[in-house]
Write a protein that binds this DNA or RNA. Sequence first.
DNA 1: CTTGAACCTATAGTTACTGTAGCTCTTATG
DNA 2: CATAAGAGCTACAGTAACTATAGGTTCAAG
Lengths: 154, 154
Amino acid sequence: MSADLTIGRVAEAAGCKVQTVRYYEQIGMIPAPPRTSGNQRIYDESAVHRLTFIRHARELGFPLQAIRDLISLSDHPDQSCAAADGIAKAQLGEVNRRIQSLIALRGELEHMIEQCKGGKVKDCRVIEVLSDHSLCETDAHDAAAPMAHPPSAG
Amino acid sequence: MSADLTIGRVAEAAGCKVQTVRYYEQIGMIPAPPRTSGNQRIYDESAVHRLTFIRHARELGFPLQAIRDLISLSDHPDQSCAAADGIAKAQLGEVNRRIQSLIALRGELEHMIEQCKGGKVKDCRVIEVLSDHSLCETDAHDAAAPMAHPPSAG
DNA sequence: CTTGAACCTATAGTTACTGTAGCTCTTATG
DNA sequence: CATAAGAGCTACAGTAACTATAGGTTCAAG
Ligand SMILES: [Zn+2]
Ligand SMILES: [Zn+2]
Ligand SMILES: [Zn+2]
Ligand SMILES: [Zn+2]
């Protein structure tokens, strides 16, 4: 066990790009691994574990800073988990806000598309609604949640 | 009508930052307005209209490139609106995908928080679930929609 | 006429990566 | 053992859509 892995292997195992692994090393999200005589990185299973944790949290929408906090928490397993739970709860709040916002936006888009009869641009509801705020059904888009850049599934 | 407006006024009217207005001019989303003898930009109502259109579309999640396309469409009002409708429909699809994805993520977060009894970090479900992919209820986060950077409400 | 807010340009920083150029290393095949 | 493909290396630039800062100028109120 704990077989040697190339960067390509860990990236594949963790479901991200090779550059992303190097990037995470560069910004200190993962430790710098040992190298071969030819200067190539060698990883073991623990790197896959750490990367999986990071990617997983990113996919859940956690910003890297929150993940950093979670990692530092998990380095002290006998502490109270209140902080970890707090981070998760904050994230849940954020996700709920985004869902609310997107549902309102969907309503606007559906309404806009539904009312368009496929005529000329000058009569197109899509453009009309986008031009005129007063035609909106809701104001939900004004409360669009500021969020970190979401990840693309590698 | 068509009173002279400073950049601060149009930014306020459009609900964005002054720098954002200048940025939009720089990248060609809005035309460069005339200037005063002291080199300050002077706008009229049409600038507010254009900016409102852009901000509105951004708040709906349209990327700037799609908005550029919509603007160029609206410059030719006698064309068919099929292209505009297509952009809106694509955007609706994207919004639906994001909602699906976020609802799945919310499920994971809620489950994770619910199962945590507030003990020590080593038993914390939050960290455990993030570490172990097999504990996930769904795989929805693997299909996280790639999307443009969402705007923050100015 | 003075002050302070608002404006100007230019540039750097943000987030979380992704892509490219121009190398070197490893590994498989002949 | 030679060679060539593929993977790895560093370093840097680019992406999206802004946001912030520095250092200077202009405008409007008092
Ligand atoms: Zn239409
Ligand atoms: Zn609106
Ligand atoms: Zn816990
Ligand atoms: Zn999972």
